[in-house]
């Protein structure tokens, strides 16, 4: 296995007296979907926000393609090719797909918006993701279904030469068919060479698309394994107790 695209080592993060992340190590490889699982409060969101530069970590190393980098704010993260698709999509209903995808980073010629270029790029990006569900890129987002919105949000994230796309529960609010569409899209992102981190509570989704699974348990990385090496019940055990047979954290006494 080559150098991971993103590698975190010994990440600690506390909010006042509460230590949310403890010595977390995390690797993400290009061309793979890494599922990040863990129970509520295990620290998934905090870890993602550390990666995205929303919270600076207290200590630890942050390496992109083997080189240490400093990420202090979302802008730094974006400049390293990290894009996060949040659960509450952050799309403007009153704008169309193109306008949303380029929001805040509009293409201009002089001071005038360069609509044809933006429309073309949006169309190319959607086509490269084999998205066929949207009729026109000039449709208002308010007229899209939940799955289509998720698609637009993901396409927005990959538009910017991003290398790592982090998806926060992309299927949480979707129906069966739409979940399937989004999972296929997630798989295609990885097949196109991007590194993808998928946060999910749904074991079926995780096993359907991921190459690796990282399990957080009470702020610590319980295990990071290949999906093909573990079973459904092992993952559930790791999530709920932090251990499963030889996998996972050592006994509490031994760890301390």
């Amino acid at each position: 296995m080559g150098t991971p695209l993103l590698e975190l080592r010994g990440i600690n993060k506390s909010f006042g007296p509460v230590q949310v992340l403890r010595d977390v190590a995390f690797q993400v490889h290009p061309g793979e979907v890494t599922a990040l699982v863990g129970d509520n409060g295990a620290g998934k969101s905090t870890l993602v926000k550390c990666i995205g530069g929303i919270y600076p970590s207290d200590s630890g190393e942050y390496l992109m393609e083997g080189k240490p980098v400093h990420v202090h704010n979302p802008r730094d993260a974006a400049s390293h090719g990290v894009e996060i698709v949040y659960q509450d999509l952050a799309l403007c209903d009153n704008l169309d797909i193109v306008q949303n995808m380029f929001l805040g980073r509009e293409k201009k010629s002089g001071m005038i918006l360069d609509e044809p270029t933006m429309e073309q790029l949006a169309q190319q990006t959607l086509a490269s993701l084999s998205v066929r569900t949207v009729k026109s890129v000039r449709q208002q987002v308010s007229s899209l279904s939940g799955g289509q919105r998720q698609t637009v949000a993901i396409a927005k994230a990959v538009l910017w030469n991003s290398k790592l796309v982090i998806l926060d529960e992309p299927t949480a609010a979707l129906g069966v068919a739409q979940t399937q569409q989004v999972l296929e899209l997630v798989r295609r992102l990885a097949d196109n060479g991007l590194a993808v981190v998928l946060i999910s509570h749904n074991m079926n989704d995780v096993f359907a698309v991921s190459d690796r699974i990282a399990m957080l348990y009470l702020g610590r990385m319980a295990a990071q394994v290949k999906t093909s090496d573990v079973t459904h019940s092992q993952v559930v055990e790791l999530i709920t107790s932090g251990r499963s047979g030889t996998l996972g954290l050592a006994e509490e006494g031994a760890a301390a």
Partner: peptide
């Protein structure tokens, strides 16, 4: 464009 965006979804903007 940003005026419309702020009016449509301030958080997204």
């Amino acid at each position: 464009r940003h005026i419309y965006a702020v009016g449509g979804n301030r958080e997204a903007a």
